[in-house]
Amino acid sequence: KFNKELSVAGREIVTLPNLNDPQKKAFIFSLWDDPSQSANLLAEAKKLNDAQAPK
């Protein structure tokens, strides 16, 4: 279960257009550290992506 959630969340995070590479890497490392938090980490990444969207 975690492997699928981890890969789905990881793929989504790397495609978020408004995150820079260090931010993406930080989220990916957090996913590896605790795969059970993949849904929460993906939600946080999406929030940050939205907040950094060009206005």
Rank of each mutant, 00 (worst) to 15 (best):
N3P: 11
P35L: 02
L19Q: 00
E12Q: 11
L48S: 02
S38V: 15
K47C: 11
A39F: 09
L48M: 07
L42F: 03
K55E: 10
S30P: 00
I28H: 01
D33V: 10
S36E: 08
A9G: 03
D50Y: 06
L16F: 05
F2I: 11
R11H: 10
S30W: 14
A39D: 10
D21H: 07
E5Y: 11
A43C: 10
N49H: 00
F27K: 00
Q23W: 03
I13N: 00
I13H: 01
L42A: 03
L19T: 00
P54M: 09
P22Y: 15
L48N: 02
A45E: 00
I13C: 04
F27A: 00
F27D: 01
A45M: 02
Q52E: 04
F29E: 06
K4E: 13
V14D: 09
N18G: 00
I13W: 00
N3T: 12
W32N: 05
E44C: 14
L6M: 10
K46Q: 08
D50T: 07
E12F: 15
P54E: 08
Q37D: 06
A43Q: 10
S36M: 07
G10W: 15
Q23F: 03
D21G: 13
F29I: 08
N49G: 01
I28F: 03
V14T: 08
A43S: 07
I28G: 01
N40S: 11
N18H: 14
Q37G: 05
A43E: 09
K47M: 09
K1E: 13
D33C: 15
S38M: 15
G10F: 15
A43Y: 10
S30I: 08
Q52A: 04
A26P: 03
E44L: 12
R11K: 09
F29T: 08
A9P: 02
L48E: 02
L42H: 01
V14A: 11
E5W: 13
N49Q: 00
Q37V: 04
V14G: 06
S36Q: 06
D21C: 15
S38W: 15
R11G: 05
K25S: 10
L31S: 02
D21A: 10
K47N: 05
V8Y: 12
A26N: 06
E44G: 04
A43V: 08
D34Y: 05
I13S: 02
S30C: 14
N40H: 12
K24T: 02
Q52V: 03
F29R: 11
A51C: 12
P35M: 04
P35E: 04
K25W: 15
A53F: 05
D50G: 06
A9V: 15
N3V: 12
L16P: 01
A51V: 07
L16H: 03
K55F: 10
K46P: 01
N40D: 09
K4Y: 13
N18E: 02
P35F: 04
I28W: 05
S30A: 14
N20P: 03
Q23E: 03
K24Y: 03
